[in-house]
Amino acid sequence: MPSHPDDYRVVRSIAVTASDVVMAHEANQSRRDQRAVIRLTPPFNGRMRARLHLVREGDAYQPPEPAPLHIDPEALIDAAPPYPHAEDTETALRAESDTQYTVEEHYERHRAAVDAWRTAVLSRLKETVTLVGRHGQHTVDVKVLGDESGLSK
């Protein structure tokens, strides 16, 4: 069995909050400038805590050694639904012949669409994920932590 602190093959399970997975995936889908990942920070051991992390790109930042392992949040979701963009919500609202478009109605509809998307993502969180790095692929269990009710705000 590997024993080096940067060898993620010793990991048997990761614990991650549902909100970290959903927020990271949402950040990546909603056209923000930074990329969000779920990060495992060495030294690696059998049970690891994974956390939301924004990746710094294009600056002089150098990750520590041994380097953290990044998991694309979509890898933790089984068939993630498409993210509802505001312009799509507006188009759908304007297409309704019996509803007058207002900024307030658009806001409420879009907020409801995003809340429904978050709920759908939560219902599709995986029980395992494959870690990929310089030592190849390694599948681990995923333990989802926390109360998901705080996501819809």
Rank of each mutant, 00 (worst) to 15 (best):
S30L: 12
R56E: 07
E105P: 01
Y8R: 00
R31M: 14
V132D: 00
T128L: 01
R124N: 04
E87G: 13
I77K: 05
V10F: 03
V103T: 15
W117R: 04
V114A: 09
E90I: 12
R56V: 06
P82G: 07
L125H: 01
D98L: 05
T91V: 12
Q34D: 13
L145E: 14
T41K: 14
A15R: 10
T128C: 03
E105F: 14
Y61I: 09
P84C: 03
A80C: 07
H53P: 09
G46H: 06
E108K: 14
L145A: 15
P64Y: 08
G150Y: 14
T139A: 08
M23I: 10
H53I: 02
V121R: 02
T41V: 15
P42Y: 11
P2R: 05
H53D: 10
Q34Y: 14
V55G: 12
T89V: 03
E105V: 11
T91I: 07
E26C: 03
R32L: 04
E74A: 06
Y61H: 11
D20F: 11
E74C: 07
S30A: 09
A24E: 02
L125S: 04
D147K: 11
T41C: 12
A15K: 11
R109K: 14
E65K: 06
W117A: 00
K143W: 15
G146D: 03
S19W: 09
D141P: 01
A116S: 04
E148G: 12
R51M: 08
V129E: 00
P2H: 06
S97G: 13
R109I: 07
A60M: 13
E87P: 05
S97R: 13
Y107S: 13
Q62G: 07
S30Y: 08
Q34N: 11
A67C: 08
E57N: 05
P84S: 09
T41D: 12
S149M: 08
Y107T: 15
I77F: 06
T17V: 10
H53G: 04
R47T: 10
A95I: 04
P73D: 14
D59N: 10
P68V: 00
P42V: 06
M23L: 15
G133N: 02
S123T: 10
P43M: 09
T102L: 09
V10I: 06
A86G: 13
Y101V: 08
V22S: 08
D6T: 02
Y101S: 11
L131V: 01
G146N: 10
R118K: 07
N28R: 09
I14R: 11
A75P: 00
P84D: 06
